[in-house]
Amino acid sequence: MSEKDKEQLKKEAAEKARAAAQRKREEREKKKEKSNDSASEMPQTTEDVTSNQDLEKQKAAAAAKAKAAALAKKKAKEAEGTETEPTANQDLEKQKAIAIAKAKAAAAAKRKAKNANENGDSEKAKAIAAAKAKAAAAAKAKGKITQAKETEVSEPITPSPQQPILDRYLNIVKEHYKDDILEDSYINRMSKHVPTIVVKLEHYYSLALLFKQHSGLHFEFLSELHGTDFETYMEIYVHLYSFKNKQSVALKVKMDRENPRVDSIASIWPGANWPECEAYDLLGIQFTNHPDLHRIMLGEDWVGHPLRKDYEPYDVEV
């Protein structure tokens, strides 16, 4: 169909519509004439028409507003994105400086106020009352502190029910290694009292092997393996369980953040295969001797490792 034809059609359609409207109008008028009290009906219909128009207008306006708001939002975001980055540090420093200044000023003001209080006769009573209140508060606070201290003190006294188990683990480890291969070992009370062992990086694999093969440990089930970026170092957290001894252990190993590299334990527990891929994908930790290290979630062409704390989203299309 050519342009002209289209236009023709359009015109025709428009004329038809106009004609239809005309007809309708005529009909309506006829009806009105028929009805006796046309006077009362007239204003009503006009009102209807106008209210309809109004509504439509309002809707249009609202839609326009909404769109404008969305646009403004986008702009604001963009502006933020470009501006804050370079100035963020400066701003922070400024804010800090301001905060310090403020704090100093406040302290000075307080001191002054105190002095004034002591001098002023009329305000003595008030000051005394305030002092009393303060003293009471202080006493309370002290009480709390001592309480807290007491609990703090009392906690280590009640040894964790898991302590002997941890000691047993440590003894076995000591039997097998001459030097100290552990960085740390403790009971993680927050994690249902799980014995936690932090091993030195170079002994991670051999200790894992010992954990699986030693009959007194026999951790045949790897429950969880994941990495965490602690900003100064990377960490692998492994949760092991022994069905035979009904005991669990959390094994941790820390590594350099810039070039995180650790032995893979997928040859000991095949179940560690995918979790290690996940840690590689999301944190960039390299696992040596891994059977098939690939970016399991994001795909090989993804730029960056999202779970690292310094990750910058990169997207060519944005």
């Binding site: 927050m190 994690s191 429950s223 969880e224 994941h226 602690f230 957290y237 949760h239």
Partner: peptide
């Protein structure tokens, strides 16, 4: 939650679901 870390595991219909929080 206070500073520290935890790992809990429970039984979901599909197996052992765990949650680690640092």
């Amino acid at each position: 939650p206070p500073k520290g870390e935890t790992f809990v595991r429970i039984e979901s219909p599909r197996g052992e679901i765990g949650c680690y929080i640092a």
